[in-house]
Design a protein around this nucleic acid. Structure first.
Length: 119
RNA sequence: UCAGUCGGCCGGACGGCCGCUGCGGCACUCACCGAAAGGUGGCCGUGGAGGAAAGUCCGGGCUCCAUGGACAAACGGUGCCGGAUAACGUCCGGCGGGGUUGAUCCCCGCUUUCGCGGGGAGAGGCCCCAGGGAUAGUGCCACAGAGAACAGACCGCCUGCCCCGCUUCGGCGGGGCGGCAAGGGUGAAACGGUGCGGUAAGAGCGCACCGCGGGACCGGCAACGGAACCGGCACGGCAAACCCCACCGGGAGCAAGACCGAAUAGGGGCGGCGCGGGCUCCUCCUCGCGAAAGCAAGGAGAAGACCCGGAUCGGUCCAGAUCAGCCGCCCGGGUAGGUUGCUUGAGGCGCCGGGUAACCGGCGUCCCAGAGGAAUGGCCGUCACGCAUGGCUCUCGGGUCAUGCCCUACAGAACCCGGCUUACAGGCCGGCUGAUGUG
């Protein structure tokens, strides 16, 4: 899984479709070519101290690893960590990520995808 | 054994599955991304957070910039002495001062004695000290109080002298001239403290003890300590107010710096094209001379080469300055981006030696994180530890079992070292002090 490293890639992904969940926000955008999917993680200082930010980053990265098959080639994904990712049970977070990937591809680019039938 | 305090150390262990990243080896010379520089991708082995990685408060290394050298000025910092160190505001050893506790000793009063009360000195323990200079100068010392830095007499005390009244002739009361600074009161601080003598009352006026100032000489590398003797006692505090003295300091920081290097814009050079003018070869027309070849004049068109060039500024000229179309190639600077700097270092460990110690020396041995939208992890099992609840037991301190929780406190390297400061669940070791128990 390739990672995003350039600031320009992150800014471009922010203009794509978005899927907010509790512990994170998923953004996705189609690239010009059909290479393997790329993923970037954003965990700002608002989330907490360096220790907490690192932990959020690691848990999100692990979820991405487990659900790598769902991601489509030619897409760039950016995962914005939220503070809830510190405490959320791992299995629930993984399920939320799978749902977010589906939502982000169902919605037209530029629109915010609503959570599907929240109950 | 427990408590307090000081110092040092550790800060979950083992295992399974799946990953990340540095290095080494082997494959691949292939695929992908990129204009390029360069990057990504396989398998095996191996390394992979801290005592504070934190705050960024000091000190260095390293890099670039500035600077002719030295000194001074300015600004900032440090400030007892000696040592350690690359250096420090750090560390070690020593000295001094203050606070608290206080063994012991001294003085005075009462007491037959035992002893009681008041005052003073003070070994030792613990804690604190921005601990140079107040005779270099300037400034400040509020309020209260009579008087506060060449200080004072409000209340008060005194019958020494004078006057008045009374008198039981002892004196008493009032006023004045004077004397005093002991007591009251104010204050952070009142021209040393306590006691005795002395006196009208008092006062270092005299004396004892204590304090204070000077001090030959002695000890110590020094800070400083001791001290014969002298002086009846003065010379206040604040430098964390300015200031003076001594010493130290150029600035910015790995986003330092070095190398590679697009697109676009801009810079320089070379070449070409285009525009205007001049001259001319040439072509055509008209006319003249000539027998002809040809010569000559005018007009029109016009290729190549050559020469000159425009605009603005300035009254004009010269000189000058600035600006100036299109295309191609080359060059240099440089942005994004990439690579590097990047981990072997005032390094860790062990032994020996020196030193009270901080620390230093010698020998041996080891290589111990190097990311970059930022690796060092995710999930799980067992055990240990902790907490909560419940059961059982019980010598009432605990022990044991089950379940649950946190799967752990503070906290995540960002160029590298030495310190300081701050945060920290729980645990281990040692020194000192005290209490208790046993022999």
């Amino acid at each position: 899984m390739q990672r995003l490293r350039q600031r320009a890639d992150f800014l471009k992904a922010a203009t794509g479709s978005k899927a907010p969940a509790g512990p994170f926000v998923l953004q996705a955008i189609k690239r010009d070519e059909d290479g393997s999917p790329r993923i970037g993680l954003t965990v700002s200082k608002k989330v907490g101290t360096a220790v907490e930010r690192n932990r959020v980053r690691r848990r999100l990265r692990e979820i991405v690893k487990q659900s790598a098959a769902m991601m489509r080639p030619g897409y760039d994904y950016v995962l914005v960590g939220r503070r809830a990712a510190l405490q959320e049970p791992f299995a629930r977070m993984a399920a939320a990520f799978d749902a977010a990937v589906r939502r982000v591809h169902a919605a037209p680019a530029g629109r915010i995808a609503k959570p599907a039938a929240r109950h």
